[in-house]
Write a protein that binds this DNA or RNA. Structure first.
Lengths: 292, 292
DNA sequence: GATTATGTGTCAATATATTTTCAGAGATTT
DNA sequence: AAATCTCTGAAAATATATTGACACATAATC
């Protein structure tokens, strides 16, 4: 494992040894990776301070990485930088990343960033806040449902909302069971729906039934808007196009996480309590597993 | 003349003052410009030696440029470097929306952008491509598994990979069933694992067993790296910190989608065929539903 | 719940870097 | 060609960085 390949960059070395690093050493490692390589080019005193650790911690860590001492590490970083700049034909231009412009990763990340920014700037904060208040309202039940692809997102939403508040139900993707859930829905309940193309008629029917019973529907859909919009109190559109045959759900995920984060903040410190109790329970579960 | 424009780079300063520099000072200036900025980031002793001049010469020159002393000059160069690296990321913060700076949505999106860029720049394209080739290899089976939180991601991965290639298995999150799967694993199979903190011992055990059977493990984890790393052939670290009590999985999702997209591209037009047949089947299903 | 192991920061020592001072080498002027 | 001026690097003085030793805190183990 510790190859100590002579051409390995400091970044590589950190990755390689990350598992063996201690907490504060990782603190420094992260600080360096986040601002690479500048974060390691000042004096040990300064970089340690910037990372919020003591100088010996930095000294110990660079030794773990295989350097003789901080100056050796410093020199190595400098050489890397030099190779990058003065190297023949800008050696793979790995300043920000080592991916060539045409590589799929690059095209992909560009599309994603575009999507996120589009999605984000299309959210009205007032509407967002109102939706969050609805999600935080535990007087009514919260139902979560998704389609074929978005089932995973619904699942993710369920896992997190369940940690934040009580009375959450994940409606399985099998639409045969939905009528049972609808039967119990009452005014004041909330239905969080995911529907991206190809839009599913079942979800539309479900939305209609729920709306008729006075349920508040929060819809997360794509930029072309699912027909469920007609029944929804809150609709959020997410930009999903990427260079591929299918649609990306990263912006969808972002919006969902933002809703979760906001709901959690709204219900703090109630949520804090739940988290702590949850943690205890997990610990118990883990103990139990030891005997299986 | 000495504008001392706050945004002026050291390079600019040198050009501006070049006329007033003495012979050896120019010697150092040229040495620095030829290897910029690395040529000025070591200690004054070293850079002076590299340029073939004495230390006082360097010290005097940087003072001529308007710096208080060599350390000041050094710090300034570092800041420049830092700005260059974080530049593209920061520039994306022109996400002018009507949201006030302090609104959660804004803070959230900033954190997410940061995470994505961080994650992205830590992926080596070679490793990425190799992992994709492994994922596209249909000689062996592809197993997908996640933990408590990442189960949703594993599900998402399964749904998409199933559309792209045959022989995909989603290992349920209930670890009790895992031995059955392991029993059938053979060399050449691939295991796509998700493990973010808190890392689950079950996943670690699973990884060990699979690795022993010659299975290639592709691990998607967070920036702190799951212990599964030890058994994995390919590890991808995703930055996950957001202003909340839990970790974000947006960058995780991005990496997953990128892997899916790349795998699809690798196997095109084979995949195209599958997609078309899949679509037909969906249509049939939909028709069928009409009569229920 | 006591005990060990591990990690962490404070402080002191040692080493290194930076600046200042100063004397000599070249260039320029008288 | 002598006198002066400017530039330059050697060396001392000063400041700062680096490392090692130690003690405390925290986590893991029994």
């Amino acid at each position: 494992m510790p190859l100590t390949n002579p051409t390995a960059t400091v970044r590589d070395l950190i990755r390689e040894h990350y598992a063996t690093l201690t907490q504060s050493e990782r603190k420094f490692a992260n600080s360096l990776l986040e601002n690479y390589p500048a974060g390691g080019l000042a004096s040990i005193t300064i970089v340690a301070e910037n990372a919020g650790v003591s100088t010996p911690t930095v000294a110990r860590m660079v030794q773990k990485l295989g350097f003789k001492g901080y100056p050796h590490f410093h020199k190595s970083l400098l050489k890397e930088l030099q190779a990058k700049v003065s190297g023949p034909t800008q050696r793979r231009e790995n300043w920000v990343s080592d991916a060539p412009e045409s590589h799929l990763l690059n095209r992909f990340s560009q599309a994603v960033t575009q999507n996120l920014s589009q999605t984000f700037s299309n959210v009205e904060t007032d509407r967002f806040d109102a939706a969050v208040r609805q999600l935080a309202n535990t007087d009514g039940r919260l139902y979560v449902v998704g389609g074929r692809i978005t089932r995973a997102l619904a699942d993710y939403a369920f896992t997190h909302f369940q940690a934040i508040r009580q009375r959450v139900t994940h409606m399985t993707s099998s639409s045969a069971t939905w009528p049972h859930y609808v039967l119990d829905m009452v005014e004041g309940d909330t239905l969080l729906m995911f529907d991206v193309r190809r839009y599913e008629t079942n979800l539309q029917n479900l939305a209609k039934l729920a709306a008729e019973r006075g349920v508040t529907i929060i819809l997360i859909t794509d930029q072309w808007a699912s027909p469920v919009t007609a029944h929804a109190s809150f609709t959020f559109n997410c930009w999903v196009e990427i260079p591929s045959a299918w649609d990306s759900n990263i912006s969808t995920m972002m919006l969902l996480e933002a809703l979760i984060a906001a709901t959690q903040e709204e219900k703090w410190p109630e949520t804090r309590d739940r988290y702590e109790r949850l943690d205890e329970l997990f610990d118990l579960t883990r103990l139990f597993r030891k005997f299986t």
